[in-house]
């Protein structure tokens, strides 16, 4: 398994831990700033990464904007931990960005990650 595929597998395993409780949604500053767009929240971004990795979605302007607008402030993780889960949400978004960045820099912006 190459490095890219190993990263994808790790990401999907981590995302699968999410119980979809959505407690992280309300505390996300970009969710608040977007006045309630769930794709602009921590939970929304995890779902986007999952669907990008499984090939259901391809990245476009909106998805790129959602992933790169995360402030990495970790407010979502504080809530996640307090609700009994301990998902490293910002690390997942960071790894998602990493996969996306490689494609964007190489000019393969229409490929799936």
């Amino acid at each position: 398994m190459n490095k890219k595929n190993a990263a994808k597998e790790t990401l999907l395993k981590e995302i699968a831990k999410c119980r979809s409780c959505r407690f992280c949604v309300d505390v996300c500053p970009t969710y608040q700033a977007s006045e309630g767009v769930e794709s602009m929240s921590a939970y929304g971004r995890l779902q986007l990464i999952k669907y990008l990795l499984t090939g259901i979605l391809e990245f476009d302007d909106s998805l790129t904007y959602c992933l790169y607008s995360c402030l990495q402030c970790r407010r979502c993780e504080v809530v996640c931990k307090s609700k009994g889960q301990d998902i490293d949400i910002c690390k997942i978004i960071q790894m998602g960005r990493s996969l996306l960045s490689q494609n964007l820099v190489q000019g393969n912006s229409n490929e799936k990650i």
């Binding site: 302007d61 909106s62 904007y65 964007l104 912006s109």
Partner: peptide, 12 residues
Amino acid sequence: MKRSKTLIAQAL
């Protein structure tokens, strides 16, 4: 949000 992909690709 428009042209985000092009803009971010260029910035990166």
